[in-house]
Computed example of a mutant assay.
Amino acid sequence: MSAYEEQVWKDLNEHWERRNNRRGLPNWASNALGRTGEVAGNAGRRVKDAVPEGVKEPIRRAGGALADAALRPAVAGAVALLDLVNEAALELNDPKTVEKIARKKGLDIDSFTELREQDLKVCDRLLARNTMKWRATGALEGGAMGALAMVPVAGIPAAMTADILVVQVLSTSIASRIAYSYGYDAKDPDEQRFIQRLVHQSFMAQATKAEPLNRTAQAAQALKGRVNWSDKLRTDHKLAAALEKLLQHLSPAGSKVSVKSVAKVVPFVGIVISAGLNSAVLGRVASEAQKYCQTRFLCEKYGLPLPAALTVDQDDAPEDDTP
């Protein structure tokens, strides 16, 4: 191994040891993969038409029906983002894109599979700042969908449907691009098995934000047009009551926080919830996929055994599918 590869191998072993101690990567899927596999699998198989018109059309209709012009940018932004996802998915799933990048960096290769003959450092350079990039993308996508969830006509159903599909398509595509960058064919069954675990994990993570987003949207609707506070309003919408108390601490002593002031803040809570989670999900997909490919690359190149966290048979995984 080169000095670079030795250091990466050391770091990878430490990473997988930590993973193995708190339930290894293969257990992400467990038997729940079969229960939600249709959603995850369809995202990968339909990557050519990543976000179908059936998802985008209801959002477009919502934009046309909105009476509040201030909310229309949220809908327009969401639709534009979905169109960009389609373009990104096509590029990320095309190995020829990786070959072009490699040639621009001075590598004389005819096929991406030849990357497996290079030093690990060469492949890593093809993915410079990759995790940071996808964290930023996740925040952008999540923020747009969080804003969409606050729109009365489109609301939570349209936002969550689009959001789940977008993140799953991007998860599949990110993992595919990373596999190609280390010389592995993302269409190979072994690679697909790992990729679908990543997609399933993103699905489970996204499901956790549906309830807080729903509560946030309900609070936004309840506050709209209100002038005065009431005990019922505070009891029914604890988020609004909590924001009232928070703003009270930030206001001059003795002043009162108006309903209108809280109503302006509530939509940003939905945006923060969605942006933060999606940033973490896509960042983790990018990081874990790269570590997995780096590990396989070094193991196969130097005849090393896979770390224990990567040798657990999926059939032996427990029912619990908590990440």
Rank of each mutant, 00 (worst) to 15 (best):
A3T: 11
A3E: 12
Q7H: 08
V8Q: 11
W9I: 01
K10H: 15
L12A: 05
N13K: 02
E14C: 10
W16R: 06
E17W: 07
R19Y: 01
R19C: 00
R19V: 00
N20M: 08
R22H: 04
R22I: 00
G24I: 01
G24Y: 01
P26C: 03
P26V: 03
P26H: 01
S30M: 03
S30C: 05
L33Y: 08
L33C: 05
R35I: 07
R35H: 04
T36R: 14
G37V: 03
V39G: 08
G41D: 00
G44N: 11
R46L: 03
K48C: 12
A50G: 05
V51P: 00
P52R: 11
E57D: 08
P58R: 07
P58W: 02
R60K: 06
R61S: 09
G63S: 08
A65K: 10
L66W: 05
A67M: 14
A67L: 15
A69E: 08
A70T: 02
A70C: 04
R72P: 13
V75E: 07
A76V: 02
A78L: 06
A80H: 07
L82A: 05
L82G: 09
L82T: 02
L84Y: 00
L84P: 00
N86P: 02
A89H: 13
L90T: 13
E91L: 14
L92M: 13
L92N: 15
N93F: 12
D94F: 15
P95Y: 15
K96H: 14
K96S: 13
V98E: 11
I101K: 14
